[in-house]
Structure formats: structure tokens, C-alpha cells
Design a protein around this nucleic acid. Structure first.
Length: 605
RNA sequence: GCCCCUAUAGCUCAAUGGAUAGAGCAGAUCACUUCUAAUGAUCCGAUGAAGGUUCGAUUCCUUCUGGGGGUACCA
């Protein structure tokens, strides 16, 4: 609808002698200001040297006239052909018929009110399209920072936990965000490749292995054969212990460096232990991916790109892209307004950035993406600027196709989280706490649930609570984590949306074979509000995908649920074909939208 | 030192340069013999400071203050 109105306004403006203007048109929250609004008159005030109100009124008059003509046209009354002025009217007929009225409001807003018939037909469309409602086949353009990408095939790289380290709530936010972005892109006509780049080599792992081989309390033999989560918790502790000693003791530092070398060299003295413990981490991660309903097309590992990275960087030196400096090989970012970074150390180890030169090449060779979105924290903004610049010089085909999507840290409300010191909130711990809370609520409920139902509701409710708590905040915003709030079940929360969905399904079950239909009957205020909001959904999905912003979708779904709950509160739904149709449509949109957030619904709760 | 991000109600968060700055939580009050009260309704309450650009600024620019991050051999 938005697009149609845009075109219509464009045509009208051209008729007024204004071309090359794409008018802004937006869906309006407050129904008193209409369903769609444009500020084009105010934008044009200066170039046209006219008062905004005057322009707006002129546009309104033309639209009114056109609407009138589009209504009263009959076959024998060939007004349109006679009147050159309205030659464009035929093409715009269907939009014009959807418009009830146009209002002009100071200081120059053009507010468009849609007819109830058009809203009703959109609700019917939801019933017809079902799960497909809101999806599209032609890819929307993606905002990548200041630029706009027309990419069709997009690689989304997310999660990237490191082996031998704790999987904390920050990783959970990363996965949740990445998963939702993937789903939104798929829904808007993109081909998506899901990848996960995991750090399985480097100093952090050497620290962990140093602890396991040097500290009695970090003896891996003590956890062999135990549950996977216990083994992984053990690794986290060993890493923290190794890290602390590393910083305090020069000898430990040297020994850890030596272990690092041994791992890269696959030295049999340490390699079997490395492989064994690496496998623990990976097994554990796989369990989490399944639990939060994520999967990947390709897992990349840092260990794959150690040699390759070094090779490309060495080539880069001969091309003059990289330089030797103090024994290391650096990319001289300072020449390009960035900062210098070491790609290969003087010990001849590829650093994170060195390896990623190899990764970049392989990613483009394997999948030929038009765009790679790296979902990574804000501390790496400068790092990626340098990396992308180096990549673009090494491999010009990657230029403009790399994007760092910043996701904000999850900080503790009290204190700072750090896997180095071992002060972390584990991802699974959070999910389990949330699940316990749901069980508590189920216990107090009057309804009788089978044990299977309870398990299903608790698990899905927990995932919904945690995921929604992360997604409702703008992706790049930091989150001050508080357990109580993140597993909240009231108000603007995942369970609220799940509850609303379950409630609507409950009504629909009770309705049984009752007639579900929306036609030309007048809509009351609550019905109209809900109908118009349902009709906004496809545009919201498109906007959320365009800006890679799940939070946009969250706000929408919350508002939609609130509108449905209000309707539910004020008017009986059973026995009203119209309200049953609205309920069916609202439920469908909730389900579709939650699915794009990576949240599964339950039929009862 | 230099660079980047950030500051909205008691707390946690919204707001493509637009209309009376929206929610949730917390607090006060009200509504379940009625389709699920994990709900709904009402009240209370906010743009860090000072300038500037604009018809219009939470949004853009400048300075200041507070918080976070980065800044060569970690990832």
C-alpha cells in the first residue's frame, strides 16, 4: 500500500510540474492521523517557494477530484478520455478506490484514510496467504551503514563461539540476532548462507591447555566421562585459571606461547588433548544450536585459515599491500585514515586478522555471496574497518561486499562479564532459569496440562522469553542484563506474545465451525485498529529486513498483540464472523512474525 | 593523547528530521458466575549541559560533562 501511495503521489506531483521527487509515505501509529501520511508538501515548500499548506491543499484537491472520478465512472460516461488532465487516472484506479479520504493538517501533513473495504480485503488476504503472508520474492535492498546493497545472495556469519571458552549470554544474543536476521532476509526474497566462524586456535586455547597440563585442579582426567556440560564448564574454568596465571607470571606467558606453537604444529605432545577438548566444545555448541533452533550451512574454523592467511599476507607483501615492520607484517591502515594492524607476528603466527584474509577468500570462492554480514560485537569496529580495507586491496571482488553488523554487548547490571576472569552468565543457565520460572507459573494455573504439554510450554516459553528480551532492543544497543527482567512474562515480553497467540487459538477452537468472514459490515474502533495494523505487516517485515533490525518487528508484534487483547477484552469474538476473521488473521500474523524472530509458538499455555 | 560508540521517566527500552516523545517494569486505583487475568482500563512520571542549522531537532553540526570501547604482534 505504501508503495502504491508513493506512486500515486508521484504521479500527482508530476501533474503539478514536479518531477524527480520520491515522496515519503509512512504508515501511521495514531489512527486519528489516518492510515498513511506524507510530509511531501513540507519538503517541497522551499523548492517551490510556496507555503506547505498551499501545496498540500493542491495535492489534496487533485486527489479528491481523482477519487471522485474513479468512483463515478460508468461505461458510457467516458469522462477520463475527454479530460487530458486526468489521463493518468486509469493506472491509479485501484489505489484511488482504496482511499476513503485525504486530509490536510497543519503544518502540511497529507493524511490518507483507507476505506474499510480495503482494510477488510487485506485481512482476507491474510487468511488466504497463511504462512506466506508477509513474505516476498523480490529481494529488498539492504542498508549497510550509509550505503545500500542490492545483494540477492547474502552470507550471514554469526554465533562464532570459541572452543575452550564459556558459552555465555552474549553468544546467546548473537545467535538470536543472527538467526532472526537470516529469517527476515529469507522472507524478503534473499538467498541466505548461514555460516559460523569459530575460534579453535590461538592464545586463548593455549592458555586453557597450559592450565590443563600444569595445574592439578585443572586435570582433564577429572571430568572425562562426565556430562557434556560439566566437561565444558571445566574448560571454561581452566581457561580462566590459565588466563589469570598468564597475566601474572612471565614464565607462564612464555610456556603458553610455546603451547600455542605446538598446537599450530600439531605436536603430538599436546595435540591429542587439544583435539579431545576441542571436540567437547563443539559437541556442546551443537546441543545449544539445536535447542535454540539454529543451524548452519558451513562451519568455518580459524585453524583452517592459519596457513592460508599467512600465504596470502606474504603475497600481499610482494604486492606492496602489506609491510614488514618491527619483524611483523602489518597492514598500514594509517595510510588510509585507519590504524595499523599486525597480520602476521614476528613469531610468524597469523593473527586473527591474518587468518581472516584467508577466510574472506574462501567464503567468496565457495559461495559467491553478494554480501557478507558479520554479526560481531562493537569492540571490533576498528578491526573490521582495517580488515575490509586490506581484503578489498588483496581481492578487489570483495570490495563493498563486507559488512560488520554490530550487536551490543550484554553487560551485567552489576559488574562486568568476562570469560577471562570466569565471571560469566552462561547461556544455558539463563535458558534453564527461565524454564524453571515458567514451570512455577504452570503449577499455579488452573488448567490441566499433561507432563508433555508442560515440558513443551516451559521450553518454548523460556526460549521466547530470552530471545525476545534480546531482540526487542536495537541490535547495536548494549543490554544491561537483569535475570528478572529477561525472563519476564508480563508486558512487553516473549511469553506475552505467546500467550496472546494461544489465547486467540483457544477462541478459534471454541468457535469450531462457526462462520469466519470479513466483508462490508462496518468496523468498530477496535476492529478497525486491528485490521489496519494487520495490513501493515508486510511493510514492517520489509523495513525490518532492510535495516537488519529485528527490534522493529518486535515493536510491531507487541502492538499487534495489545490491539488484539483490547478487542478481546471489549467485544465477544464468538458469534461474530468478522471478529473471528480478525482473530484468525491476528493469530496468523503473530505466528509468522514470531517465526521470523526465531520464536516457536504454542497452541495453548 | 588520538579515534569510535553512547546519554530519553525511579529501572529497562522505543521513536525513516515531523503531529500531544511511546511502551514495559516498579508505585496507586479498578475489572474475572462471561471466549485463557501470563489479560485489560485509569493515574503518576523523561530527551545530560550550552550553542547552532531547520518551517519543524530525541534525531543533524559544534563545544562541554558522564559512561563504554578501540588504539602492533590477543580474539
Amino acid at each position: 500500500m505504501k508503495h502504491h501511495l508513493q506512486t500515486l503521489l508521484q504521479v500527482v506531483l508530476e501533474d503539478m510540474g514536479v518531477s524527480d521527487v520520491v515522496p515519503d509515505v509512512g504508515a501511521i501509529e495514531d489512527p486519528r492521523h489516518g492510515d498513511y501520511s506524507s510530509n511531501v508538501a513540507m519538503k517541497l515548500a522551499k523548492p517551490l517557494k510556496k507555503a506547505p499548506m498551499e501545496i498540500a491543499l493542491q495535492v489534496k484537491n487533485m486527489l479528491d477530484e481523482a477519487i471522485l472520478r474513479s468512483r463515478h465512472r460508468s461505461p458510457d460516461q467516458n469522462i477520463i478520455k475527454e479530460d487530458q488532465k486526468y489521463a493518468w487516472l486509469d493506472a491509479q484506479k485501484s489505489v484511488l478506490q482504496d482511499i476513503d479520504k485525504v486530509e490536510v493538517v497543519a503544518p502540511g501533513f497529507l493524511n490518507v484514510f483507507l476505506t474499510e473495504a480495503s482494510l477488510s480485503s487485506r485481512v482476507s488476504q491474510v487468511l488466504k496467504d497463511g504462512e506466506r503472508y508477509g513474505t516476498s520474492h523480490t529481494p529488498v535492498d539492504i542498508h549497510v551503514g550509509e550505503a545500500v546493497s542490492t545483494a540477492k545472495r547474502i552470507m550471514v556469519e554469526f554465533a562464532h563461539p570459541n572452543t575452550h571458552k564459556a558459552f555465555h549470554i552474549g553468544h546467546l544474543r548473537n545467535i538470536t540476532t543472527g538467526e532472526s536476521i537470516v529469517r527476515m532476509l529469507e522472507a524478503t526474497g534473499h538467498e541466505v548462507i548461514r555460516v559460523n566462524y569459530q575460534g579453535d586456535v590461538g592464545m586463548h586455547i593455549a592458555k586453557c591447555l597450559w592450565a590443563m597440563t600444569n595445574l592439578a585442579e585443572c586435570d582433564p582426567g577429572s571430568v572425562r566421562g562426565k556430562e557434556i556440560h560439566e566437561r565444558v564448564e571445566f574448560l571454561g574454568k581452566a581457561y580462566a585459571a590459565g588466563s589469570t596465571r598468564y597475566e601474572a607470571d612471565e614464565e607462564v606467558k612464555a610456556a603458553t606461547g610455546a603451547i600455542n606453537k605446538q598446537i599450530y604444529a600439531k605436536d603430538p605432545a599436546i595435540y591429542p588433548l587439544y583435539q579431545e577438548t576441542r571436540a567437547w566444545s563443539l559437541e556442546y555448541f551443537e546441543g545449544i544450536y539445536q535447542r535454540v533452533n539454529t543451524h548452519y550451512d558451513r562451519f568455518y574454523f580459524e585453524s583452517e585459515f592459519y596457513e592460508l592467511g599467512k600465504k596470502y599476507v606474504a603475497e600481499g607483501v610482494t604486492k606492496g599491500i602489506f609491510e614488514k615492520s618491527d619483524g611483523a607484517i602489518i597492514f598500514p591502515g594509517e595510510k588510509y585514515g585507519l590504524h595499523n594492524r599486525v597480520f602476521v607476528t614476528k613469531e610468524d603466527n597469523a593473527t586473527y586478522e591474518g587468518k581472516e584474509i584467508g577466510l574472506g577468500r574462501v567464503q567468496f570462492d565457495e559461495y559467491h555471496p553478494d554480501l557478507i554480514v558479520h554479526v560481531v560485537g562493537p569492540e571490533q569496529v576498528g578491526y573490521f574497518q582495517v580488515l575490509f580495507a586490506a581484503l578489498a586491496m588483496m581481492f578487489p571482488d570483495t570490495k563493498g561486499k563486507e559488512y560488520h553488523k554490530v550487536y551490543g554487548w550484554v553487560k551485567l547490571k552489576h559488574g562486568k562479564m568476562s570469560s577471562r576472569t570466569g565471571q560469566v552468565v552462561l547461556g544455558e543457565w539463563l535458558l534453564d532459569e527461565a524454564k524453571k520460572s515458567v514451570f512455577e507459573i504452570l503449577k499455579q494455573s488452573k488448567s490441566n496440562y499433561t507432563e508433555e504439554d508442560q515440558e513443551d510450554i516451559a521450553e518454548k516459553g523460556a526460549i521466547a522469553a530470552v530471545k525476545y528480551a534480546f531482540l526487542r532492543v536495537s541490535t547495536d544497543q548494549e543490554i544491561a542484563f537483569d535475570l528478572k527482567e529477561s525472563v519476564s512474562f508480563d508486558g512487553d515480553s516473549g511469553p506475552y506474545l505467546l500467550y496472546t497467540y494461544a489465547r486467540s487459538k483457544s477462541v478459534l477452537r471454541k468457535a469450531g465451525n462457526e462462520k469466519v468472514h470479513i466483508g462490508n459490515e462496518p468496523l468498530n474502533a477496535e476492529e478497525r485498529s486491528l485490521a489496519r495494523f494487520i495490513s501493515f505487516y508486510p511493510e514492517v517485515v520489509s523495513d525490518a529486513a532492510r535495516t537488519l533490525s529485528p527490534s522493529v518487528l518486535c515493536s510491531y508484534l507487541f502492538k499487534l498483540a495489545a490491539l488484539f487483547n483490547l478487542l478481546y477484552q471489549k467485544h465477544p469474538i464468538l458469534n461474530s464472523p468478522q471478529r473471528l476473521a480478525l482473530t484468525t488473521a491476528a493469530a496468523q500474523v503473530l505466528k509468522n512474525g514470531l517465526s521470523l524472530l526465531g520464536i516457536a509458538t504454542v497452541e495453548r499455555m
